[in-house]
Design a binder for these strands. Structure first.
Lengths: 224, 224
DNA sequence: AGCAGAAATCATGAGTTTTTCAAAGAGTAA
DNA sequence: TTACTCTTTGAAAAACTCATGATTTCTGCT
């Protein structure tokens, strides 16, 4: 059982780390949002403890991006009450939260509860759709058993599409999801990646998998 | 039965050495961390008695590095209580500890107990992945039955990759695991070893076994 | 059916980042 | 010494991202 602990305060990090390790969990730590995202994908943790008040990329944004790729349980650490409101208000996919200051003992108990709950409903991490399968964490994509090497952007697009194959997504939506809100990349750029992605799928035998719905967006073609 | 004794105090070293030799064990001594690591690999001891308060490389670090390569039982010598906390709190893979001052007689008894226990459960674990096999303890690597001579670093990389073949490991992660956290070696250094390792594997018929995932890391190529 | 404008696709290339490569110095063991 | 390993360094090569503008396709309208 591996836990990713994200907090910018080294003292708190050490304190919590020891508590978690006492509970017989393997701990990976990150001090900021970027590092957190990195470890979230590299280490494939089974649980994430995430502070909200991070420098640069804040906890909310980190959570949002992780949720794009994974359903790993996330517990927030918050310092202020208004942050709690945000957690509850936004649909972030948080599993629980703990307000600072807190006792490490309590934190461990909370994590145990959530893990127990989530292990029952455990979902395999790989996404599938017909002959296509994609495991974003392992960074591995196959079609008809044949491996395809995707770049980060291509995988991002395909991951989003696979999360709800029937749904049509507009370019604007894809851009927001992949590059984050307020990004400046143009529609044409997305199209370029889309083109490359399609070419790779095509080459691997997946004919016309990504369908264009004119003036609306794109989606995966229904499995026949 | 060979025992490696690591302590920076010459008096204590002699004292313990005599006790151990009375018990009919062969004794190798080291006065600091570097020397300890050296002997640990050269002499292939069956047991290690390791003082924590060593100059430069402390006992924890020495233990960590030895554990990368071997499951040899380790018993810690500690002078202070807070060090005990560390041993217990951190998952270092220590088998036991003795606080100074201690009686040599007691130490011998403890070692006997551990040896008895470990000899029963000791399983030399060779790692395999397709045609590739690696036994880190024996420092032996084969591919298609053909023996390959690996340097320490090369084996370190390959061992990590083999521990979970599907997983992609970033360069940073590999460096942390192999050289320890806070090490100063550059990514290029790792690349150099990687290059050498790949060349050796290639030469022995293992084509393109280590796969690069651009901007993410490296992993073993999936066995088809 | 044919047209105009919008939307999507395509081809290309500059700019970055990441990876690989090669050469050489320092340290260590035989 | 000689051979080998480890490490550093700098630069070449490769991969990737993104932007741009030309071209093609689509759709509603006359």
């Amino acid at each position: 059982m591996k836990i990713l602990l994200v907090d910018d305060d080294p003292r708190l990090r050490d304190l919590v780390r020891i508590a978690l390790e006492r509970a017989d969990w393997q701990v990976v730590t990150a001090a900021d949002g970027q590092e957190a995202l990195l470890h979230a994908s590299r280490e494939a943790p089974d649980f994430i403890v995430l502070d909200i008040g991070l420098p640069e990329l804040d906890g909310f944004e980190v959570c949002r991006r992780i949720r794009q790729r994974s359903e790993v349980p996330i517990l927030f650490l918050t310092a202020r009450d208004d942050e709690v409101d945000c957690i509850l208000g936004l649909e972030l996919g948080a599993d629980d939260y703990v307000t600072k200051p807190f006792s490490p003992r309590e934190l461990v108990a909370r994590i145990r509860t959530i893990l127990k709950r989530s292990q029952k409903t455990h979902v395999p991490s790989a996404l599938r759709h017909g002959a296509l399968s994609l495991d974003p964490l392992a960074h591995r994509c196959q079609i008809n058993g044949q491996e395809i090497a995707l770049t980060a952007r291509e995988q991002g697009i395909l991951t989003l599409l696979l999360q709800d194959p029937a749904r049509i997504r507009s370019r604007a939506e894809l851009i927001t999801q992949i590059w984050g809100a307020g990004s400046q990349v143009s529609d044409r750029t997305l199209d370029s990646h889309l083109r490359n992605l399609r070419a790779k799928l095509e080459r691997a035998g997946g004919h016309d998998l990504i369908e264009t719905v004119h003036a609306v967006g794109i989606r995966l073609r229904a499995v026949t």
